[in-house]
C-alpha cells in the first residue's frame, strides 16, 4: 500500500521511502518521517492537494505525489 491510498485518520507505519526524491526524503528524515516511523493522516486536501500527517506530535504537509511514493502498512 502507499500513503496516498489511505483515508483521513488512518494510522500507518512507513515501510519504504526509496522512491521519494532525494531532497524530499532527506527533509522528511530530518522531521523524523523515516522508515519504521508511525504516522497519522490528519487532513487530505481536495483536488489532488497535499496531505497533512502527524508524526511524533508534529504536523507536516507533503505533496500527494510524495505520498504516492511512500509505502506503508497498517500500524498494529
Amino acid at each position: 500500500m502507499v500513503l496516498s491510498e489511505m483515508k483521513q485518520g488512518s494510522i500507518v507505519k512507513i515501510l519504504n521511502t526509496d522512491r521519494v526524491s532525494e531532497i524530499v526524503r532527506r527533509r522528511l528524515i530530518d522531521l523524523g518521517m523515516m522508515e519504521g516511523a508511525t504516522i497519522r493522516i490528519k487532513r487530505i486536501l481536495p483536488f489532488g492537494g497535499p496531505f497533512a500527517v502527524e508524526i511524533c506530535g508534529q504536523w507536516i504537509g507533503i505533496r500527494r505525489c510524495e505520498a504516492k511514493s511512500i509505502e506503508v502498512e497498517w500500524a498494529s
Binding site: 531532497i23 524530499v24 497535499p50 508534529q58 504536523w59 507536516i60 504537509g61
Partner: peptide, 11 residues
C-alpha cells in the same frame, strides 16, 4: 531538477 514542498504545520 526537483521541486519540493514539505511544510511544517505548527500548532
Amino acid at each position: 531538477s526537483s521541486s519540493m514542498f514539505v511544510v511544517e504545520l505548527p500548532p
